[in-house]
Computed example of a mutant assay.
Amino acid sequence: MSDHTTDPATETFVAHRNLLFTVAYEMLGSAADAEDVLQETWLRWVKVDLDHIRDQRAYLVRITTRQALNRLRSMKRRREAYVGQWLPEPLLTTPDVAEDVELAESMSMAMMLVLESLSPTERAVFVLREVFDVGYDEIAEAVGKSPAAVRQIAHRARRHVDARRPRKRASAGETRAALESFRRALETGDPQDLLDVLAPEVVLLSDGGGIKRAALRPVVGAEKIARFYLGGTAKVAAEIICEPTVVNGSPALAVRVGGELDGVMAVRVEDGLITGLYFVRNPEKLTRVTSETPLTLR
């Protein structure tokens, strides 16, 4: 009769897996790379003598952070060679993520793009401190800096993020309403309806990864974006269906053309108007929008 009991190392890793994935994804913006980081974390974790580990959760977060930092530095070269705009890989999230305002804000496309503008170490420190509330001493262990240096980095990163994040976070209801207006305007092809929901200086970022057609540079301004969408979709308007979904904890649209998933549209909303449009069309980034990814801060 076989023994089905799980060893302590595996039990601990499985218990904290969702947390570790969330940490890695927040640092990398890529689910595929986050999964690779978890695999690297596991390979190191199984070699650890658990009898000498006082706080196993903290130790796992430390390993994950170090592996994510290594990968983040190597990904910089990959991003520089990327065709067109790079956007984070969208995740279909469970309802509890949307209910956790802090987690949903940190996972939003707009915030993930702000995090992209930080250095790897700044991003690691900001994510661990501001999102996961990790202590400065523990962060210092994870990033290989002194606690005093970590405090300075955290202050600098917080100032940088605060200068770029929305003044106030739109509620899920406000975001859904703006998306619904945007969806109707796209499906009816009415330019004025589209202009009514777009802020004058709205910015569109579209990510085709060199595989699907997308604007290679940001498109700025409501009128330019209206022309971009209504001109480009007029021929296939009858085949386009925009379905409400929840991506990275926030309302979004799954865009289907001829019944096939063509992309995911996330938005940034301020004062009822869309100020940022994030359209991910790269098919390699659409593998995590058909089944929910469990995420957690704890």
Rank of each mutant, 00 (worst) to 15 (best):
V114I: 05
L273D: 12
M109S: 06
V23P: 14
L198A: 06
R298I: 08
V125I: 01
L72V: 10
L20E: 06
H160K: 14
D137P: 00
L204W: 08
G249Y: 02
L72G: 09
L60M: 14
V255G: 12
Q152Y: 03
G208Q: 02
R79V: 11
A238Y: 13
E35G: 02
D196N: 15
K224M: 05
F182N: 07
A172E: 07
V134Y: 02
E116M: 05
E102T: 06
R151L: 10
D3S: 12
G210P: 05
L186A: 04
K285F: 07
K285V: 00
Q85R: 08
G221W: 05
L103T: 00
D207P: 03
L195M: 09
D3K: 07
W45G: 15
G221E: 09
D262Y: 05
V161L: 09
R57N: 11
A234N: 14
D33A: 12
V203Y: 08
P166T: 04
L87R: 05
S206V: 00
Q152A: 09
F228N: 08
M1L: 13
E40H: 04
K47A: 12
G208M: 08
I139L: 03
V269M: 10
R281W: 04
N70K: 12
L261V: 10
L43K: 15
N282Y: 04
G29Q: 12
V61N: 13
E174V: 09
A163P: 01
A142Q: 00
A214W: 06
V97L: 07
L38N: 01
M111T: 02
G84M: 05
L186T: 01
R176N: 14
A172K: 01
R288D: 02
A237M: 15
P166C: 14
T10M: 13
D49K: 12
V127D: 01
K224H: 10
V202Q: 09
M27C: 15
A214F: 02
L87Q: 04
R123E: 01
D162L: 15
W86S: 03
G209C: 07
A149S: 11
F182G: 03
A234P: 12
R227Q: 09
H4K: 09
V37R: 13
L198H: 11
A226H: 03
V46I: 11
R66D: 05
D262G: 03
I211P: 02
L87P: 05
V202W: 05
L50M: 10
V61I: 14
H4T: 11
D190C: 01
D96Y: 02
A110R: 06
T12R: 15
V97Y: 05
L253H: 11
A140D: 01
E270S: 08
R57C: 10
D207R: 01
L253R: 09
A234V: 13
R184S: 09
A32L: 10
G29S: 10
E80H: 06
L128T: 00
R159F: 07
L261Y: 03
P244W: 14
S74C: 02
L297E: 01
R73P: 06
T41K: 10
R54D: 15
W86F: 13
P244M: 15
D49N: 10
T290D: 09
V101Y: 10
